[in-house]
Simulated scan of single mutants.
Amino acid sequence: MGKSCDIKKMFAPFAPETHKAMDRYTSFRVGGPADILVLPQTMEQVIALAKTAQKAGVPVTILGGGTNVLISDKGVRGLVMVLTRLRQGIEQTAPHMNTGGDSSDQICLTALAGERLGNICRHAADSGLAGLAWAAGIPGTIGGAVMMNAGAFGSDMSQIVMEIEVLDLTTLETTVLPGNRLPFSYRKLALENSIVLKVRLGLAKADPGTVRDEFYRNLKTKQSTQPVSQASAGCYFKNPPGFKPAGFLIEQAGIKNARCNGAMVSDLHANFIVNHGNACASDILNLAVQIRKSVYEKFGITLKEEVKTIGD
């Protein structure tokens, strides 16, 4: 009890909430309590929180928009930082020489990790900047999009990230990393034990009307083919390499509309599990097991989760 009180005192300057349910911080709308929850607004606060956590000996969990995660019903131990308030607008500049930019037609967009990806997409579309229209309708933050290497319509973040600034949670040092040296892979950036603080994207000048048309065309496609108005975490499974997309396999396995209490396979896109009512994390996990089993029995393919499960 004494140690717990001491830890709470250490985080007191950051106005933490304790034992806070995490359902409001994820797009699935499920999740048990975080021991300590803080929503930092500046990079300096993130760094100070990381230093305090290291001194207190508590683990650190980072959330962006909570759009590609499932938090367990038992919650998350230690410190949870939700970075949705870590933003200060979108800066538009010419590329720096050290990022490899050498084209007069190239423009950099810079934002802190908590800036909404949708805001950056619309800024690019309104400014006639090509290279990001594929992300129309993808929820979450730019930091989360980089960490997940978000993608759609044949493109992904790895193609446009010029550099990122990160905090190493072990050394507590910040570093600027060039995009062409980042270990991106399908729906992943292998950057362990680090927090993305700032992102710089490289986009190309283009005809504003053409960029806007592509943006709204992609947005309309996403809205008509995915359950964007329902509580979900986006595509639950990765598309298996060399096979049909996961959604096709799930549908052909005959379990579209399958349910586990309040969790349901979407009738619009079979690779979406939606919180159709009062689902809990265990309902979603149990339904995911059923989906994997059905696809394996039908096709001999083991689906791998794209959604990251966090917590006990």
Rank of each mutant, 00 (worst) to 15 (best):
residue 127 S to W: 07
residue 230 Q to E: 14
residue 230 Q to P: 01
residue 241 P to H: 09
residue 18 T to P: 00
residue 53 A to T: 01
residue 226 Q to M: 13
residue 150 A to D: 01
residue 295 V to L: 09
residue 73 D to S: 11
residue 167 L to V: 00
residue 105 D to F: 10
residue 80 V to T: 12
residue 251 E to L: 05
residue 12 A to V: 06
residue 258 A to H: 11
residue 220 K to I: 07
residue 193 N to E: 14
residue 297 E to A: 14
residue 285 L to R: 13
residue 163 E to Y: 03
residue 125 A to N: 04
residue 263 A to D: 07
residue 235 C to L: 06
residue 5 C to M: 15
residue 287 L to M: 04
residue 5 C to V: 14
residue 39 L to I: 12
residue 69 V to C: 09
residue 221 T to H: 15
residue 222 K to N: 05
residue 93 T to Q: 11
residue 304 K to R: 13
residue 299 F to G: 06
residue 301 I to Q: 08
residue 65 G to P: 00
residue 292 R to S: 11
residue 5 C to H: 12
residue 94 A to P: 02
residue 98 N to T: 10
residue 246 A to V: 06
residue 175 T to Y: 01
residue 154 G to F: 11
residue 176 V to Y: 00
residue 251 E to S: 08
residue 114 G to N: 08
residue 52 T to F: 04
residue 228 V to N: 04
residue 258 A to P: 03
residue 113 A to G: 06
residue 172 L to N: 05
residue 156 D to F: 03
residue 287 L to E: 01
residue 87 R to Q: 14
residue 93 T to L: 10
residue 19 H to G: 08
residue 48 A to D: 11
residue 23 D to V: 01
residue 261 N to W: 07
residue 65 G to I: 02
residue 104 S to H: 09
residue 11 F to K: 05
residue 273 I to W: 04
residue 182 L to M: 13
residue 153 F to H: 15
residue 195 I to S: 00
residue 36 I to M: 13
residue 36 I to Y: 15
residue 232 S to L: 12
residue 277 G to P: 03
residue 284 I to V: 13
residue 301 I to Y: 08
residue 45 Q to S: 12
residue 310 I to Q: 03
residue 130 A to V: 08
residue 173 E to Y: 07
residue 180 N to V: 08
residue 134 W to D: 00
residue 187 R to Q: 11
residue 161 V to T: 10
residue 9 K to C: 10
residue 266 S to N: 08
residue 137 G to Q: 03
residue 274 V to P: 00
residue 278 N to E: 13
residue 279 A to R: 01
residue 187 R to P: 01
residue 129 L to Q: 05
residue 34 A to D: 01
residue 160 I to M: 13
residue 168 D to W: 00
residue 165 E to C: 12
residue 258 A to D: 07
residue 176 V to Q: 03
residue 295 V to A: 06
residue 309 T to G: 02
residue 278 N to G: 14
residue 25 Y to A: 02
residue 184 F to M: 09
residue 112 L to Y: 11
residue 15 A to Y: 05
residue 21 A to N: 10
residue 289 V to S: 12
residue 173 E to W: 05
residue 306 E to P: 05
residue 49 L to H: 04
residue 190 A to T: 12
residue 200 R to I: 15
residue 275 N to F: 05
